[in-house]
Structures are given as structure tokens and as C-alpha cells.
Design a protein around this nucleic acid. Structure first.
Lengths: 329, 329
DNA sequence: GTGAAAGCGCTAACAC
DNA sequence: GTGTTAGCGCTTTCAC
């Protein structure tokens, strides 16, 4: 592999000039620039970015920590991140933490060891030390910790959940089951609060029997619904994500409960598949790619030394599809 | 950030000794090792990996090129790759080429610029230069070019497709539609050949009217089926992937065609969702994580200077679910 | 077993 | 506008 020295020799200039010709062409005369370009082409030179990074002490890489790479919800967020990263000449290192704090820590260490410049975390399952006050350039997307001084990009979980439940109430439901996520998670607390807000607004008592916990997986939705329907009588169901909504839908169908005639279902996320089920799943759409784009832009701003918004709230949207009807039916 | 010099000063040894104590602890006396460890802990030293990489001229990073990160099929493959990479102290840089050759080239250039040591490509949409004879350490998974001298990890597309069609023939179907992928793609050519093999084996003429092209997307499956059923009468349908099978299923239901009673459907891949549809989708399972693991192991072997298998064929499996019944029904 | 010293390939002052 | 030079932080001979 040719180095900058070879190019310099070939072009009959110094290495500094070669470097300039490539990085700041305007700081070099037209003539030398052409000479250098010719030499580069002749020997097929491609700069050693590792050496450059060492010299400039930056890596032009950002780490994205995802709790589960096979969860489709994250794919479009990552795509949005990639798009922005690319535009700003950053590479993206995708780290799957597999829901473990240790893995997450390993990825965060990439910043300490100068292999990455910053972090976008799509998970709140982070090492405890870090939650106190992060010294690392970092942005959290979707998830957050209350009081954790890191810019976040997220949605209004409480308001969005409330809007979904409002819709069910509007079309006449009065007994609405709810499959939550892990309740130690702040966004789950928010969504549950949103559910409660809606009922309280029209003076319906909140029945604790209406809730079952899931873990955001299809299977947990499936089994949570089987448990739920044994102790709670409902005409509608609100699930904290689409995956669990689909699991619940499958369970309902197996139990001979017709969707939507006997059970209306609302999900959360708007996964690709929400549109394809039969009936289509009514859900709270999170603009996934936009979340990714915004998170990446925020991190880029932080990395450039700018002050970033502490919190950016991305609007959601209730998508009404076939999975809900009035209970009168 | 402390450097190795700081640690050396603190421990009262040379930088060389610090380096040794960390990289080859056995080459250093117990006593100095402890001194160094204490110093490292005291100042919170974490080695600058960029500097190390420059010195050793390697990056311990592999690039994975994916044509579409939001395509779930690749998620589990990537997960398998990550697992192996981690075990061998490699980082994974996930590159989404968005089906463009330019993007793919950009990711391949990471190897030239020493930012990555090798490539795993999950797409065949690569720059033409590269296809001639790759000088870069590279492994292809799933896709391949005939005659391209790079180790591949893939399935027996022809045999697998044939097994799926055999199954449909076995349960009595004689008129089997087929939604293919882009026919310039070698694996699609193979799968089509497999379809033809099955028919020819029992002396059924292959009707060119039985085929419609898709592009592996849900939507293309949907519209391909609508076209297909206008000019071809079938009791069963074989799709080159699950996404298109689901699209076709949706189209069929909309057209009032009952699945499986009036139309049996077989897919390919075994996406997570194949199990969750109603009816469950009969499909050819590709062991995605295993493909990833094998591809990564192969690349690691190449990077370590070993000779890797030129081609590894991973077995597939026909998963029979509810989407197929005998046409007599 | 340990230290001194030479670079890996590049960039950025600083001179000219 | 261009060259000289001094490192970035680490690993690795080569001596001792």
C-alpha cells in the first residue's frame, strides 16, 4: 500500500503539500494540486485513516447501542442515524447490547479508547455509573432517565398513550385492558400514566386488574393476554407496542375471540407489519426514521462543540386501521 | 485522558513495560505487573486503540454490507456475525448500502483506508471492478456470483426451492404459481431452476405464465399476485421470500380467495412473522443466525491468514404450517 | 525482565 | 504557496 510519502516523491513535493492538496485544495496552487492528483491516481493511494485519526485525535465514528438488533423497531431508527452520519462523514458502529449492561458498557468504552467519538443509545439499560452524569458525548433516543443530563430525542409517551385510549373511549369502550412493558422503564410509567389520564378525564375508575406486564416481545403479548382475559372482562385492549399487540391478537383468535368484533386492539410503534395483519392494527405511529435523524443531528452538534437541545420531542400520530370498532357491535 | 506515559511514570517503569504488562502479562514479573495494574487503576488509563491499530496496522473491525437494514431477514444474520466478531475481539461496522453500488463501494473503501480489516457482504450489488477478483479479505453470505473467487456461505437455493415445490406437488397441487425475485440475481435463477426441476421430475410442463417477478418486498408480492391471478389459474403459490408471500396472501384475501382452502402458499426464509400470520406460513427456513456465524468464522479465518472453505452450504428445512392444504378441499 | 529508541502514516504549526 | 519538523500514543525490536 502506498503512503503519503510515495505520493510526495512521485509528485515531487513534500508530504505536507500532498496532505494539503487533499484536505484543503484551496491552500495549494492549481498546478501542484494537479500534480498531486495525478500522483495519487498513479499509485492508487488511499490515505490511512487510522493515522489521520490518531493525529487529529478523533475517529469520525459514532456508536449506536441497540438493546436488540433483531427488533424491527430499531431498524428504521438506525437507518435515519446512518443517513445523517454519512452526510457528516461519520461511520456508524452498531452495537447490539442484547439487553445487557455489560455489553452496553463495552460499547461505551469505545469512546474512552478513542475508537468512537460519541454514542447514541436506544436503550436505557446502561451501566449505573454512567447514569449519574455522563462525561461522554452521548444522546439518548426513545428511552430516557428522568434527571439524566444527556440530550434526548423521544416522543410524548404519556400524551400519545392517552390519545390512543381516548380513541377507544370515544368509540364507546369502557372496559379497556392494557398490556404494559417492564414497569421499571420510565417510558412505560409514562404510557401507563397516559392510560390513566384518559380514564380519569371522564371519571372512570382505573381498575388494577386491567393491567398485565409484558416485555415488548410477541410472546409476552401472547401470554399476557391469556392471563389478562382470565381476570378482566374487556371490549378493548391497549398494548404498549405492536409486537405485543400482535401476540395478543394471535392469542385472542386462538381463544375464539373475534378481532375486532369482540375485541378492539390498539398497538404502539407502527411497525411495518402493523399494516399487514388482518385486520390492520390501529396504532400510535412513532416516526422512527425521524427519531434517528434527529438523534444523529443532535449528537453531531454535540460533537462539534455546540449546545444541543436537552430534549427534543417528536410528534406521534394515531393511525386508525381495522382492529378497532365500537363495542355495540 | 492519561496515556501510557502517565502510567509508566506513575508505576516507575518504562512505557514498554506497561505495554507488555497489558498485552503479554507473562513477559513481565509478577511484581511489576501489579505495580502497573495499580497505576492503570489509579489514573483510569484506557489504551488509545487508534494508536495501537496504527502501530500494528490492523483495525480489528469488520464491515458488514447489508442491502437494506430494515429488511428483517438480515437482522439475525448480523446478530450471528456480531457474536463471532465479539468473541474474536472484532468490532462490527454495519453498512447499509441501500441497494446501491456506490454505497457498497464506500464501505469497501474502509478496508483500503485501514479502517476495517475485512468485509462480509450480504448483497451481490457490488462494484463491478471488485467482482473480477477481489484482493480484499471478503466473504459473501447468502448471495454469490458464479465464478467470483471469494468464500461464500449460502444455502442450496435450487434444492431448497425444489423441496418446497415437491411438497406442494406431493399434497396434490398441479398448478403452482411462482412469484420470483429479480431474475438477474443468481440465487433467483437457482430457485427458479429448483421449481422447474420439481415439475419436470414428474413430467409436468413448465408454463411461463406461472411466473411473475417481484423484488422481495411486501408490496411487490402483493402486486405480483394480483397480476398473476389474472392470467394464471392456480391452486398453490410459491414465493421466493416470506415478505412477498405475505403480500400475496394479503392480495388473495382482498380478492376473496381463501387461504389455504382455495390457495396454498409457501414462502422462503422463515422470518419471525411467518409463524404469526393466520394461517401460519409454510416456508423454507434459512438458519439466519447460523449463516452469520459461519460467515464471520470464515472471515476470521481469512484474516488470520488461513485458507477458508471456498463455499459453505448451510442446510435448510421446510417448515410446514397452516398455509397449505390439498387442493381437493 | 526491563529500558531506550525507532517508527506506524498522517497533520499542523512554524518557517521561509 | 510550500517545505521542515515535531509529534499523535502505542508496540516492538534490540540491547542490556
Amino acid at each position: 500500500m502506498p503512503t503519503i510519502k510515495d505520493v510526495a516523491k512521485l509528485a515531487g513535493v513534500s508530504t505536507a503539500t500532498v496532505s494539503r492538496a487533499m484536505m484543503n485544495p484551496e491552500k495549494v496552487s492549481e498546478k501542484t494540486r494537479l500534480k498531486v492528483e495525478a500522483a495519487v491516481a498513479e499509485c492508487g493511494f488511499s490515505p490511512n485513516v487510522i493515522a489521520r485519526n490518531l493525529r487529529r485525535s478523533e475517529s469520525k465514528t459514532i456508536v449506536v447501542i441497540v438493546p436488540d438488533i433483531s427488533n424491527m423497531f430499531f431498524a428504521n431508527i438506525v437507518r435515519g442515524i446512518q443517513r445523517v452520519a454519512l452526510k457528516n462523514a461519520y461511520k456508524v458502529l452498531l452495537g447490539d447490547s442484547i439487553h445487557t449492561v455489560e455489553q452496553a458498557k463495552a460499547y461505551m468504552d469505545l469512546v474512552r479508547s478513542k475508537q468512537a467519538d460519541g454514542i447514541i443509545s436506544l436503550t436505557a439499560e446502561l451501566p449505573a455509573e454512567v447514569r449519574q452524569g455522563s462525561e461522554l458525548p452521548m444522546v439518548m433516543a426513545c428511552e430516557y432517565f428522568p434527571g439524566f443530563p444527556v440530550p434526548t430525542v423521544r416522543i410524548d409517551n404519556r400524551g400519545s398513550a392517552s390519545r390512543a385510549v381516548d380513541y377507544l373511549l370515544d368509540i364507546g369502550h369502557r372496559s379497556i385492558g392494557c398490556i404494559t412493558g417492564p414497569m421499571e422503564n420510565p417510558i412505560c410509567i409514562d404510557r401507563k400514566a397516559g392510560y390513566q389520564d384518559s380514564l380519569q378525564k371522564i371519571n372512570i375508575a382505573v381498575d388494577e386488574q386491567a393491567f398485565e406486564d409484558g416485555d415488548f416481545s410477541f410472546h409476552s403479548g401472547y401470554s399476557a393476554f391469556r392471563r389478562l382475559q382470565q381476570h378482566f372482562n374487556m371490549t378493548a385492549l391497549f398494548c404498549f407496542n405492536d409486537m405485543m399487540a400482535l401476540g395478543a391478537m394471535k392469542a385472542a383468535i386462538e381463544l375464539g375471540i373475534k378481532v375486532p368484533q369482540q375485541l378492539s386492539i390498539v398497538g404502539f410503534d407502527d411497525l411495518l407489519f402493523a399494516e399487514y395483519t388482518d385486520p390492520g392494527l390501529t396504532t400510535v405511529r412513532q416516526p422512527q426514521e425521524e427519531i434517528g435523524i434527529t438523534a444523529a443531528n443532535t449528537l453531531v452538534k454535540v460533537l462539534q462543540g455546540g449546545k444541543a437541545n436537552q430534549d427534543t420531542i417528536i410528534p406521534t400520530q394515531l393511525l386508525v386501521r381495522g382492529s378497532c370498532v365500537s363495542p355495540s357491535k
